[in-house]
Amino acid sequence: MSAPAAFLLRFALPVGIGAALLYAATLSLDPYSLTILQFVGINVILAVSLNITNGFTGLFSLGHPAFMTIGGYVTAILTMPATRKTAMLRDLPSILAAHEWPFAASLTAGGLVAALAAVIVGIPVLRLRGHYLAVATLGLIFIVQSFAVNLPGITRGALGLAGLPPVTNVWWVYLVLVLTLLTCWRVKHSSLGRTMLAIRENELAAASLGVKVARTRVLSFALGAFFAGVAGGLWAHLVTLIAPGSFSILLGFQLIVMVVLGGTGSIAGAAIAAVVLTLSTEWLRPIEEAAGLFGASQIIVAVGVILVLIFRPSGLFGTAEPNVFGAFARRRRHAQSTP
């Protein structure tokens, strides 16, 4: 699959079908279901991008909510009408305050700033391994939240930025989703992706073969952060609000669960787990409300997670990609799953 043409063809058909389905959805679904559809898409973006960091490279990061917060705030500040900005955000540099950016540019900027933050944080933090990295990235969530709360001149403090233009729609979400999948797929099946997997499997061996371990780690961390930042921007303009507590540790946990359930390193696995978990929480909700047992749905999901971990510890797909995509494209390729 080196030829870009063949690669695009593999994606063109599913994307076309997907677009048609989405169009049908926009015509037939009520606003609530459409919103859920968008959150499903955003969660897939998040899970799949977290999979670059956690799945491919084996860095156990919980920091996605931190990057979403950064990306969300940057995007929100950029798209906000200039008149409101100057009134509400006193400490904003005048270059930012005077202009109002288009959504695509704002999203990209949000992603880039998140990625930049990931590089700055990543260079020292990625020297840590396993659990240590997990807790350090968890700490990052607290640190970012503290700044969001305590810099009211830029973030409006605890209140958050409300009344953002509701520009996120199904098309934006799924466009970014396709781009994310495409990027992940290409990365995974490129030399970079193999480098990442090599680091995950045996860092010393990879280093001895000349792999630049530190650089690759930071790169994969930043790549994941970029998409988290973009997803944060999409999220903020879907909810039309971003507050310091918008993206919590709980969300970080849910994302990790998606990656692990899907099979660490499997793009399709992460995507499917994201869809299933997002929808099942929605479906459990009416039951919980009818019974008046608020909190029951979270318990059910958590118990389910433990059961899957016990009975299927390598997740649904391991590192492999199931053949659904191949079948979908009617072009079954054989050696697509990585060793």
Partner: peptide, 16 residues
């Protein structure tokens, strides 16, 4: 009754 779970996203979808 809809539980908004201390989460702005949940709150927005609940409203919807």
């Amino acid at each position: 009754a809809i539980d908004t779970k201390n989460d702005t996203r949940e709150t927005a979808t609940a409203a919807q």
